[in-house]
């Protein structure tokens, strides 16, 4: 099938290899990947800050741009939740409500797409390392993705998955929260890093680059060896 890829702005600029990995995986599975360069943001930062009108101004472009897509894949639970759960909210009573709802029904977070939609768990990847997995909260609680990333990781050859303590607790990123209340965000991140470090893993994996940006920032500042990596980058190791 033809899969429309949505690459949020921060992945585009800061973590392009996540997007590249997704393309490689989907193409390996025999699908055609389509990408609309003019779509850069889902509007979540504005939405989470209470600026729903401004969020809608950004979202309209996304709704229009993906109108004809068959399915849309996004390598971020957070942006996925914005489109699936919160677009219906901000488009309530808006002329584009129908279009927003139809987009909400065809958007998938990357691991969800592989496991639930395509029914694929084994991509023939090999990644010789010990890893621990962090669920982004939006993926976990808005999209109910807990097992999908783990199912995928378990099939990766030579990879050992170790769970950390308090595995479902938030890393403390939270979008603009991270800079509006940096002291709380930092304390939460420190607790998360401590749990991850305790596992003795080489890599901290997540399906959300935004969590990883925050956690990697903390780890690098403390000169820790633990490295963060997106799930797609591991799965693309074939």
């Amino acid at each position: 099938m033809t899969i429309s890829l949505f690459i949020p702005c921060f992945i585009d600029q800061l973590f392009p290899s996540v997007g590249i990995s997704v393309v490689r995986i989907l193409e390996k599975l025999g699908h055609k990947v389509d990408f609309d360069e003019s779509l850069v943001c889902c509007g979540q930062p504005a939405f989470n800050t209470g600026c729903w009108n401004e969020a809608r101004d950004v979202a309209i472009r996304v709704v229009d741009g993906l109108k004809n897509a068959e399915v849309v894949v996004i390598p971020s639970g957070s942006c996925g939740a914005m489109i699936r759960v919160f677009y219906p909210e901000i488009f309530k009573g808006h002329p584009k409500q129908e279009a927003a709802l139809s987009l909400a029904h065809k958007i998938y977070e990357f691991s969800e797409f592989l496991v639930d939609r395509l029914g694929v768990v084994d991509l023939g990847s090999r990644f010789p390392a010990k890893v621990t997995f962090h669920n982004g909260c939006h993926g976990l609680r808005e999209l109910r993705l807990k097992q999908q990333p783990r199912q995928l990781l378990r099939q990766v050859k030579e990879l050992t998955l170790v769970e950390m303590d308090d595995q479902t607790s938030c890393c403390g990123f939270g979008g603009t929260f991270a800079v509006k209340f940096p002291m709380i965000s930092t304390a939460m991140g420190e607790a998360k890093c401590a749990s991850a470090l305790e596992t003795g893993a080489d890599f901290l994996v997540s399906n959300d680059s935004s969590c990883l940006m925050h956690l990697q920032g903390l780890l690098s500042r403390k000169k820790e060896k633990l490295k963060s990596i997106h799930l797609a980058e591991i799965l693309a190791s074939f």
């Binding site: 973590f15 360069e37 903390l218």
Partner: peptide, 24 residues
């Protein structure tokens, strides 16, 4: 000016080639 982030965290680095550049 980004101290709210950088006081406790390293700032992420903008990649040499963005995803869009790769795609192009």
């Amino acid at each position: 000016p980004l101290r709210a982030w950088t006081a406790s965290r390293e700032a992420p680095v903008i990649a040499k080639e963005s995803f869009r550049q790769y795609w192009k």
